[in-house]
């Protein structure tokens, strides 16, 4: 019996080593391990042996069976791998062919700039707000210390809405700046206040390379106890560094906006020429970025804030102008041209 088993084992393993395709493997399994296979036939005889031989023969038979089965598994895997390897070897592509294209969507450069700028302020504890684009004269002018007939009204050429109140006045307009939101914010909140307000504005102006009748602004307002001009400088310095680079310098000069006092204009040293003078900075080494100032006490008083207790600063800038500076765009009208060849560059 033992000899028979040894014989079968030797023969089967020899055969198995010769096999090189999956179909022959199955034939081998039928020949040896199948219902009428060589091993099965021998094992069937175990029952007819004497009881003392039966146990040993059974154990040996099972051992041989296990051996053949694991050998089959191993050989199967070997052959499968060989076949696969052979198949992959012939499955070649041109890796330089273009990938399946996905359309590229992009954010409008104005929006990108607004997000970057507002994010810089959010990191300094500012909250983002928005407000109405159609406004009352009161919020756009009067509450900002610009009563009717005020000479400074000329600074903002206005689109008026075709609406007359019962007194025959035309008090509704398209906001000329985001500053009315200073008033609305303070009317609705108690100090401390720290907000940035991006939004669309409109001015009755001829359109050219640097002027658009429709444009965006970002307004900022901080009011609280103990806010000083030094804080204005610090906050805007941090903003300038985040947007224009960490080694930026800032400079303030006196300027006039009726709702701030003192009022200033902030410039940064030219990031293009590092202050040496170039086309970007009109050879001055400095680039005007925004208007700012300490909130006028009259504006505080109107919204019910006690100017003896609270001080604050406000600022306003044009994101399109900042995008133009950063990307070297020379014509503001491109932002509204919506030419996809322009938009897809950002």
């Amino acid at each position: 019996m033992q000899e028979q088993l040894d014989d079968i084992r030797r023969k089967a393993l020899d055969e198995l080593a010769q096999i090189s395709n999956v179909g022959d493997l199955d034939e081998w399994r039928v020949n040896h391990l199948g219902r009428n296979g060589s091993l099965t036939t021998v094992l069937r005889q175990v029952g007819s042996l004497a009881p003392d031989e039966r146990k040993e023969a059974g154990a040996n038979g099972n051992k041989t069976k296990t051996l053949l089965e694991t050998s089959l598994e191993k050989r199967t895997e070997e052959i499968t791998n060989l076949v696969l390897e052979e198949k992959l070897k012939n499955d070649r592509i041109d890796v330089t062919l273009p990938g399946t294209p996905l359309m590229q969507g992009r954010m409008h450069p104005t929006m990108q700039t607004i997000q970057e700028i507002t994010n810089a302020f959010v990191a300094m504890g500012f909250q983002i707000l928005e407000g109405p684009e159609v406004e009352w004269d009161y919020y756009n002018f009067e509450a900002l210390n610009i009563p009717p007939g005020h000479p400074a009204r000329d600074m903002w050429n206005t689109f008026w809405v075709d609406y007359e109140d019962k007194d025959g006045n035309r008090p509704m307009l398209l906001r000329t700046h985001t500053s009315p939101m200073q008033v609305r914010t303070m009317e609705n909140r108690e100090p401390p206040v720290r907000v940035v307000i991006p939004g669309r504005c409109y001015r009755y102006e001829a359109t050219d390379a640097t002027h658009e009748s429709s444009f965006f602004q970002i307004e900022g307002l901080t009011v609280g106890e103990g806010i000083t001009f030094a804080d204005l400088k610090g906050t805007l310095y941090e903003f300038a560094r985040r947007i224009f680079g960490m080694d930026r310098q800032i400079r303030f000069r006196c300027d006039y906006f009726p709702f701030v006092e003192p009022g200033v204009d902030m410039s940064i040293d030219c990031f293009n020429c590092q202050g040496k003078g170039c086309r970007v900075c009109s050879s001055t080494g400095w680039i005007e970025i925004m208007g700012a100032g300490m909130v006028h006490p009259e504006v505080l008083r109107r919204v019910g804030y006690d100017p003896e207790k609270y001080t604050g600063f406000a600022f306003g800038m044009g994101p399109e102008r900042i995008a133009m500076l950063r990307h070297g765009i020379e014509d503001i009208r491109l932002f509204y041209s919506n030419d996809i060849r322009f938009l897809q560059q950002f």
Binding site: M124, G125, Q127, R189, P192, V193, R194, T222, G224, E225, G226, I227, T228, F229, A230, D231, K233, G234, T235, Y237, E238, R251, F252, R253, C254, V264
Partner: peptide, 16 residues
């Protein structure tokens, strides 16, 4: 304005 120092507001953050 150059002589004015650079500081950051010390007033508390407004409630969010």
């Amino acid at each position: 304005y150059d002589v004015i120092p650079i500081t950051l507001p010390i007033s508390p953050f407004p409630s969010h």
